[in-house]
Amino acid sequence: MSMGIIHSVIFSLTHEKGSSEEIQFLEEGKLKLSSIPCVNKFQVFRQVSQKNEYDFGFSMVFETQLDYEAYNVHPVHIDFVANRWDTEVKQFMEIDYKEI
Protein backbone atom coordinates (compact mmCIF):
# COMPACT_ATOMS: atom_id res chain seq x y z
CA MET A 1 0.00 0.00 0.00
CA SER A 2 1.26 3.46 -0.91
CA MET A 3 2.25 5.95 1.78
CA GLY A 4 0.42 8.77 0.01
CA ILE A 5 2.21 12.05 -0.64
CA ILE A 6 5.32 12.86 1.34
CA HIS A 7 5.83 16.61 1.64
CA SER A 8 9.31 17.63 2.75
CA VAL A 9 10.99 20.98 3.04
CA ILE A 10 14.58 21.58 4.06
CA PHE A 11 15.53 25.04 5.21
CA SER A 12 17.81 27.38 7.11
CA LEU A 13 16.67 30.13 9.42
CA THR A 14 17.79 33.73 9.80
CA HIS A 15 18.30 33.14 13.54
CA GLU A 16 21.60 32.40 15.22
CA LYS A 17 22.24 28.65 15.49
CA GLY A 18 21.12 27.28 18.84
CA SER A 19 19.20 30.45 19.72
CA SER A 20 15.89 30.52 21.53
CA GLU A 21 14.32 32.05 18.39
CA GLU A 22 15.44 29.05 16.36
CA ILE A 23 13.96 26.62 18.89
CA GLN A 24 10.72 28.60 19.09
CA PHE A 25 10.33 28.53 15.31
CA LEU A 26 10.79 24.75 15.16
CA GLU A 27 8.47 24.12 18.11
CA GLU A 28 5.75 26.42 16.79
CA GLY A 29 6.06 24.90 13.32
CA LYS A 30 5.54 21.43 14.73
CA LEU A 31 2.69 22.48 17.02
CA LYS A 32 0.75 24.45 14.43
CA LEU A 33 1.33 22.44 11.26
CA SER A 34 0.77 19.06 12.90
CA SER A 35 -2.57 20.36 14.25
CA ILE A 36 -4.00 20.52 10.73
CA PRO A 37 -6.31 17.49 10.47
CA CYS A 38 -5.02 16.10 7.15
CA VAL A 39 -1.35 16.17 8.26
CA ASN A 40 0.09 12.77 9.22
CA LYS A 41 3.51 11.74 10.57
CA PHE A 42 4.81 15.28 11.04
CA GLN A 43 8.52 15.26 11.84
CA VAL A 44 11.19 17.88 12.49
CA PHE A 45 14.77 17.09 11.53
CA ARG A 46 18.19 18.60 12.06
CA GLN A 47 20.24 18.20 8.89
CA VAL A 48 23.63 16.58 9.61
CA SER A 49 25.20 16.06 6.18
CA GLN A 50 27.95 18.35 4.97
CA LYS A 51 26.74 17.85 1.39
CA ASN A 52 24.34 20.80 1.52
CA GLU A 53 23.93 24.09 3.36
CA TYR A 54 20.47 23.62 4.89
CA ASP A 55 19.98 23.17 8.64
CA PHE A 56 16.51 21.70 9.26
CA GLY A 57 13.70 19.73 7.72
CA PHE A 58 9.96 19.38 8.16
CA SER A 59 8.30 16.29 6.74
CA MET A 60 4.69 15.16 6.71
CA VAL A 61 2.47 12.70 4.88
CA PHE A 62 -0.88 13.24 3.19
CA GLU A 63 -3.15 10.31 2.34
CA THR A 64 -4.47 11.89 -0.87
CA GLN A 65 -3.87 14.74 -3.28
CA LEU A 66 -7.03 16.38 -1.94
CA ASP A 67 -5.56 16.30 1.59
CA TYR A 68 -2.38 17.91 0.31
CA GLU A 69 -4.36 20.62 -1.45
CA ALA A 70 -6.46 21.21 1.68
CA TYR A 71 -3.26 21.66 3.71
CA ASN A 72 -1.94 24.28 1.32
CA VAL A 73 -5.04 26.47 1.75
CA HIS A 74 -5.69 25.72 5.43
CA PRO A 75 -5.79 28.95 7.51
CA VAL A 76 -3.23 27.62 10.03
CA HIS A 77 -0.75 26.85 7.23
CA ILE A 78 -1.36 30.20 5.51
CA ASP A 79 -0.88 32.05 8.83
CA PHE A 80 2.34 30.19 9.68
CA VAL A 81 3.81 30.88 6.24
CA ALA A 82 2.85 34.57 6.30
CA ASN A 83 3.84 35.32 9.88
CA ARG A 84 6.81 33.03 10.51
CA TRP A 85 8.10 31.26 7.40
CA ASP A 86 8.30 34.25 5.06
CA THR A 87 10.16 36.37 7.61
CA GLU A 88 12.39 33.82 9.39
CA VAL A 89 13.45 31.34 6.70
CA LYS A 90 16.63 32.33 4.89
CA GLN A 91 16.55 29.59 2.23
CA PHE A 92 14.60 26.44 1.50
CA MET A 93 13.94 23.63 -0.92
CA GLU A 94 10.63 21.79 -1.10
CA ILE A 95 9.94 18.34 -2.51
CA ASP A 96 6.68 16.42 -2.75
CA TYR A 97 6.84 12.80 -3.78
CA LYS A 98 5.02 9.48 -3.86
CA GLU A 99 6.26 5.95 -3.54
CA ILE A 100 6.64 4.11 -6.85
Rank of each mutant, 00 (worst) to 15 (best):
M1E: 12
M3E: 15
M3G: 07
I5A: 01
I6Y: 09
H7D: 06
V9S: 00
I10Q: 04
F11M: 10
S12I: 00
S12D: 09
L13F: 00
T14S: 12
H15G: 04
K17M: 03
G18A: 11
E21T: 01
E21Q: 12
I23H: 07
F25E: 05
F25R: 00
E27D: 14
E27G: 08
E28M: 08
G29C: 06
L33Y: 01
S35A: 15
I36W: 00
I36T: 05
C38E: 15
V39A: 06
V39P: 02
V39C: 12
N40T: 02
K41L: 05
Q43N: 13
Q43L: 07
Q43Y: 04
Q47C: 12
Q47F: 13
V48D: 10
V48S: 13
V48A: 09
Q50W: 03
N52I: 03
Y54T: 01
F56V: 10
F56K: 05
G57V: 04
G57D: 03
F58Q: 10
S59L: 13
T64L: 11
L66S: 15
D67W: 02
Y68A: 14
Y68H: 10
A70L: 11
A70D: 11
Y71L: 04
V73P: 00
H74S: 07
H74E: 09
H74W: 02
P75V: 06
H77F: 02
H77S: 03
D79P: 00
D79L: 04
A82H: 08
A82G: 10
N83T: 12
R84Q: 11
W85L: 01
W85P: 07
W85C: 02
D86M: 10
E88N: 10
M93I: 09
E94C: 08
E94V: 14
I95L: 10
D96Y: 02
Y97H: 09
I100P: 12
